[in-house]
C-alpha cells in the first residue's frame, strides 16, 4: 500500500471499517510517515470535535409535543373543524385545523379526547363517529388487501356506468386529473348496513377513498373534518348523496380535494 492509498483509507480506519490486514498495514505505514501521522491525528481531532460540538440537545418540550401529537392522532375520531369552507372559491389552505387548541392537547389520551369532543361539541352526532370508524376501517382494509378497485379506469364514463345494476343509485363520478387528483377506479363497499360506492382517487402517492351513498335527509350539514390515527376524513353532502373522503393526505389538501369534487 503506497502513501496515497493509505491517505485515502484513513477515514475508513477512523470508522473501524477496514479489514484487519489493511488496518495493520496502515499502522505500519503510520510509524514511518510523518505526513500520514499528522493527517491521522488531524482526522481523529476532527472526529472528536464533531462529536463534541455538532450535537444539540433535544429541544425542551419536544418529547411532550410528540407525545401529544400522537395522542391526538390516535384518539377516537375527533371532529377537528366544524364548518369546512362551504363555498369552493375559498382557499382551503387558510383553514388551519383547530386541533392545536391549548388545553385540548394538554389532556391528550384517548379518553380525554373522546370526552372533550362530547363536552365541546355536544351536537356532534354519535352517528358521525360511528360512520367515521367504519369509513376509516374500510379505507385501511382496502389498502391492506390491495383491493382498491373492481373497475380500474381513469375514465369517469367507464366508472360511473359500472355501478349501474350493482347499486340502487348512481354515484357522482368526476375526474380531477387536471387538478392533480386523478380518478383511478371504483369498487363496491359496505357501510351503514348498505352497499355503497367507493371511488378511488390518487394524489401523488396518497390514495383517497370516497364513499358515497344516498342521503336520508335533505338537510345539508356543513362539511366536517375528522381525524383518526393519522388519517383525515372529510364528510359532506352533494347531489343528494352522503360523501366521505378518507386519506393520509394532509388536511388542507384533502379539503381542497373535497371542494373540487363539490364544484362539479
Amino acid at each position: 500500500m503506497n502513501h496515497d492509498q493509505v491517505q485515502a483509507r484513513l477515514s475508513a480506519m477512523l470508522d473501524h471499517a477496514l479489514p484487519a490486514a489493511e488496518a495493520a498495514e496502515i499502522t505500519l505505514h503510520l510509524a514511518t510517515c510523518a505526513e500520514c501521522q499528522h493527517a491521522w491525528a488531524a482526522q481523529q481531532a476532527l472526529q472528536t470535535w464533531i462529536k463534541r460540538d455538532a450535537v444539540q440537545a433535544v429541544p425542551a418540550g419536544l418529547v411532550q409535543q410528540l407525545s401529544q401529537h400522537l395522542a391526538q392522532q390516535t384518539a377516537a375520531p375527533v371532529l377537528i373543524a366544524a364548518p369546512a369552507p362551504a363555498t369552493v372559491s375559498e382557499k382551503p389552505t387558510r383553514t388551519r385545523p383547530l386541533w392545536l387548541w391549548p388545553g385540548f392537547a394538554g389532556l391528550g389520551g384517548v379518553l380525554a379526547g373522546g370526552l372533550l369532543t362530547l363536552l365541546l361539541l355536544p351536537r356532534a352526532p354519535e352517528a358521525q363517529t360511528q360512520i367515521a370508524q367504519e369509513v376509516f376501517a374500510s379505507h385501511i382494509r382496502a389498502l391492506q388487501a390491495g383491493h382498491l378497485s373492481d373497475v380500474v379506469s381513469t375514465d369517469q364514463h367507464t366508472v360511473k356506468p359500472w355501478f349501474a345494476g350493482k347499486l340502487d343509485f348512481s354515484p357522482p363520478v368526476h375526474d380531477l386529473a387536471a387538478e392533480g387528483f386523478p380518478l383511478i377506479g371504483g369498487r363496491l363497499d359496505y357501510l351503514q348496513q348498505r352497499p355503497v360506492a367507493a371511488l378511488v382517487y390518487r394524489h401523488q402517492l396518497h390514495v383517497i377513498n370516497v364513499f358515497v351513498w344516498p342521503a336520508s335527509t335533505t338537510h345539508q350539514p356543513a362539511p366536517r373534518l375528522l381525524q383518526q390515527q393519522g388519517y383525515q376524513m372529510v364528510a359532506w353532502q352533494q347531489e343528494g348523496m352522503n360523501c366521505w373522503a378518507v386519506s393520509d393526505l394532509n388536511t388542507p389538501e384533502l379539503q381542497k380535494f373535497a371542494s373540487l369534487l363539490q364544484q362539479h
Binding site: 496515497d4 491517505q7 485515502a8 505526513e35 499528522h38 493527517a39 491525528a41 488531524a42 481531532a45 476532527l46
Partner: peptide, 11 residues
C-alpha cells in the same frame, strides 16, 4: 482525489 492538505490542526 481525497488527498488534501492535512497540515492544519483541528485540535
Amino acid at each position: 482525489s481525497e488527498a488534501i492538505d492535512w497540515t492544519f490542526n483541528p485540535e
